[in-house]
Design a protein around this nucleic acid. Structure first.
Lengths: 224, 224
DNA sequence: AGCTGTGAAAAGATTCACAGCG
DNA sequence: CGCTGTGAATCTTTTCACAGCT
């Protein structure tokens, strides 16, 4: 009766659930049966109170005095993330990065099926890639529609990204993972996540910059 | 006089500064002289109050009633991010993703110089990559030390990541960008940023899952 | 008048600390 | 007794709204 009303799961929690899921898969492979929040948190690199709060959004899964059943917990997280049903994806833009993404085993092993690889360059169309062949971008809409694709991955140059995004959205895609260094505009019902490689380095650069000065802003003498 | 005491710049702000920087570079290229917080925010995909607050951490840069000088602002952000000095990096793990990262023009064009590409596979050592050659991982420490490398990029399989990380840190690297799906432990003085490709798709999967049910949890009828 | 810069309020995320179940 | 699950406290981030400079 006290079926826990799953209040809205916070965005920050969702991001961590994916990490816990990976860690738990490792534990399952190592035949671990039970894990405490303390142990799991240590492996996942978070603090245990945070982990417990994160898991509490999924309902009461653990056993007090004992911990969490690894298999049960993993299953529960996977289902919360919607990974029980396989999702179909397309990848657009098959340059260096596109090739790397297509070859990334982590995707298919984790419930994502790529049903199309597209590029605008005629010189690339027809070349083999991963488990398929590069298609001309003109086929994008039909493939998306025929396969009920819900996730589109964009790895084109920045100047093509918005156009590709618009076409994906028009064809029915409602989630986009964008590797192009550009800000995409989409309707409200579409989710976009961005991976900005250069920005990541710049953020690290900021911290390097920080470290080379004292907390008070003064220069710190080099250790070397 | 009222030289603005630059209170600690929040982490969330730092991440956005990198985005503003890219947008501003685009505006410079388009010969735009001045931009208002409203305009800049629209292009960067954030709200204008947030943008103004972000910029306020860098000091008072804009002109009331007018806006920001594009060149001045860009320069100011670049210097805050520590991009005035060029940073040297090494890349470890030259699989598909490593190749893509090495070939990513965005890095060198934005102030990052890669001084070494390493892999443990003898079959890869000596092959050309980007502007150099793949080196054996055994040379890692000497290259890091000789070049004062501050940023290490890890694109190895998960099971090698921690070992590589330890070696980088021991050799003096204080910032790590990790593409391997694993949690790294590092000393306090070392910063780690993680890019987890599968996790990104899983987060989108969660939102897809969400969308297929109503806000109240009920199933929503398919639109097709 | 227009637009920045910023206190103050609101929302969101993390951490604490402990009640309560097994 | 040990460990989960969670209110309450704290800290961070976002948003509001307007004083004040140009």
């Amino acid at each position: 009766m006290s079926e826990r009303r799953p209040r809205e799961i916070p965005e920050a929690t969702v991001a961590r659930l994916a990490v816990y899921l990976r860690v738990l898969t490792g534990l399952v492979d190592a035949s671990t049966v039970t894990v405490s929040s303390e142990e799991l948190a240590a492996i996942a690199g978070v603090n245990s109170a945070k982990l417990r709060k994160d898991l509490s959004y999924l309902g009461s899964i653990g056993t007090r005095g004992v911990g969490y059943d690894v298999t049960v917990l993993r299953e529960r997280i996977a289902s919360s993330l919607g990974l029980s049903e396989r999702r179909t994806c397309v990848l657009v833009g098959i340059g260096n990065l596109g090739h790397a993404l297509a070859g990334y085993a982590g995707f298919s092993s984790r419930g994502f099926t790529f049903v199309g690889y597209f590029d605008a360059d005629p010189g690339r169309v027809g070349l083999p890639i991963a488990d398929g062949t590069i298609s001309d971008i003109s086929a994008l809409e039909s493939v998306v529609e025929e396969n009920g694709v819900s996730i589109g991955v964009i790895a084109t140059p920045a100047d093509a990204a918005q156009t590709v995004c618009d076409r994906l959205v028009d064809a029915g895609v409602t989630s986009i993972l964008n590797f192009a260094p550009s800000v995409l505009s989409v309707p409200d019902n579409v989710d976009v996540r961005k991976v900005d490689l250069a920005a990541e380095l710049q953020i690290l650069s900021f911290h390097e910059h920080r470290k080379s000065r004292g907390p008070d802003g003064g220069l710190v003498e080099s250790v070397g």
